[in-house]
Design a binder for these strands. Structure first.
Lengths: 343, 343
DNA sequence: CTGTTAGCGCGTTCAG
DNA sequence: CTGAACGCGCTAACAG
């Protein structure tokens, strides 16, 4: 086979014209059953595969997508906007117009307002970092009813009629963290500290759930100290942790569920060189990498923001086109980084 | 900005014709410096970005690629061929003709024979799973001299003039394995067993090197038992390991560098339920996943064969076109899977 | 040195 | 129900 079959080849082989082939390919009406079968047979026989690039070129359609991103938040959250811009500049951005609106973080009413302004005559699809509130869920459903395609990004809004969630399985991430931390700590009894960003963030709650689940069943010799909620504020987190370090000499492990890594890091640094306290956190930000290299952190779970923005764009296009989503390709992995396999 | 600028727009804005724009875009000769500047300025001003798909379509060039794959080997090695077929059917396979030749495993002369038959009038590029031998290195250099682009896949051939290596950093993988295993085992003294596929495989040797390096410096309380070389034969591996299990009651960890996972698994199963022996292996094959779920294995390092075949195809195309390779995108990550983050 | 023209493979009119 | 003709954005071959 020296070159791929084209629609011309199929048309010739089936003894029909190009447009008939096109009709069969795109399941359009107006083809006699016999003709359709002849064409289909030619397609199979020649091993014809549609040239997606040429198809997109000729269709000349534009996808209009809107991303609703928090105006601030953790280093990870803030990395999404630039990655989205890269995505828009890359191949997935072809024939695609991507707008971004920033919304106050953790402010459900603002998110609802933004969502309610998304009209199907301006946008074909919208991606949003979910805030878990009933009013948000309802606003998503209204948008879907209006004919706008909706996906959630990084943090899901279950119960809503969003058509897809782009992000990691946060319960599994919590379980993974517990598995790692538990094994790192070993069999001696001790205490474990969880540092949480905010209980309003669904992804953080889910991680905590998975973490407690595995720690309780598989590492019962480890005590869970009262959770520190740092509200993604590093100073506040550092202070609280420092107090805990002083009061709990049996502390053997820390799980940083969300923001506040830098706070944890400065508290640890203040209490001396890397000790026997094992630390697992999330998101391979520059500070986290540094902490891994220095030995203050032992492992970092990561979700690749570039993968996520690209997946969100691909999924929205599929939803708009009505073509199926490749679940396997769109699954966002929980990456584990140690000092030794940092990219 | 309602739609992207095209070459037409640039031409109009600069007051020149399409072909002049094309010449500037593709750094071709025959454009006066002043004209070039005017065009470049228009490109920047309009934010013009070339539509890669349309370019490929019009160029109408076919990439002829050859993959030399081992005829047998581990489950992982055998997974490459089907993944390559998927790649050929996917978007990277557009305008690309991918042939595969299977070569006897670990047989340098056969690989050399195959390589010497690759002529630039038949193939633009070759990807091969390296066998580390001088004659292979020389054959690669001859192919490059002939004008064929060469990349190594999964196992590198350093010292050759191959233009790229598609695969994980195996020394780093060995270090990662040691980091994990060492931390999992803890601070008590004990012995560690390495199970090797073959000393002829460069990737295995490199992993072993990295592993010994970290184990020796960071976990000096762990003794390294004499390496078991299983030649990717499960029965042989199982037998040798069973003997070792009997003779070394202080065995606390096993690192499976290459093939033979099923052999290790059957030996472990034979000696009872998951014990205090920690096991780290490579490649998330079905058996490895099963072993993780059952608790016989603790972690599996993985390289995604699909990523690798796609990267190989992309890189070869870049080499053929003379366009730069995106090092970041083409870096193959060392994935770590625990039971809890299996995809 | 620069411009004109004819496709690449497909989708989309609009005629038959 | 079917076919012919045009154009998407870009490159290449050929004129000026």
């Amino acid at each position: 086979m020296t070159r791929r079959a084209t629609t011309h080849d199929v048309a010739r082989a089936a003894g029909v014209s190009l447009s008939t082939v096109d009709r069969v390919l795109n399941d359009r009406i107006g083809v006699r059953e016999g003709t359709r079968r002849r064409v289909q047979e030619a397609i199979d026989r020649l091993g014809y595969r549609r040239d997606a690039a040429a198809a997109a070129l000729s269709r000349d359609t534009f996808y209009r997508l809107l991303f609703l991103l928090p105006d601030r938040g953790s280093t990870f959250i803030r990395s999404i906007a630039p990655k989205l811009r890269e995505t828009a500049d890359g191949p997935e951005g072809m024939r695609t117009e991507i707008h971004t609106i920033t919304v106050p973080m953790l402010d459900a009413p603002s998110l609802v307002t933004a969502l309610d302004q998304v009209m199907p005559d301006a946008y074909d699809g919208v991606a949003l970092v979910g805030t878990d509130a009933r009013i948000v869920r309802d606003a998503i459903d209204r948008a879907v009813d209006r004919g706008v395609h909706v996906v959630t990004l990084v943090s899901d809004v279950p119960g809503s009629r969003r058509e897809h969630y782009v992000g990691i399985d946060n319960v599994a991430a919590g379980r993974t963290a517990a598995s790692l931390l538990g094994r790192f700590i070993g069999t001696e009894p001790g205490a474990v500290q969880v540092v949480l960003g905010s209980r309003q963030l669904r992804d953080h709650i889910e991680r905590l759930f998975g973490f407690e689940q595995v720690l309780g069943t598989e590492f019962p010799h480890l005590d869970l100290l009262p959770v520190i909620e740092g509200f993604e504020d590093n100073d506040r987190t550092a202070e609280a942790l420092q107090a805990r370090l002083a009061s709990s000499p049996d502390l053997r492990g820390i799980y940083i569920v969300g923001g506040g890594k830098q706070g944890v890091l400065s508290a640890l640094r203040a209490s001396g060189p890397p000790s026997l306290i094992r630390v697992v956190g999330h998101d391979a930000t520059p500070h986290a990498r540094q902490a891994l290299m220095e030995g203050y952190f032992d492992a970092v779970l990561n979700q690749d923001p570039g993968h996520e923005t690209r997946s969100a764009v691909r999924v929205l296009k599929c939803l708009i086109d009505g073509t199926p989503i490749h679940q396997d390709q769109e699954r966002i992995c929980i990456d584990i980084f140690l000092r030794d396999n940092l990219p």
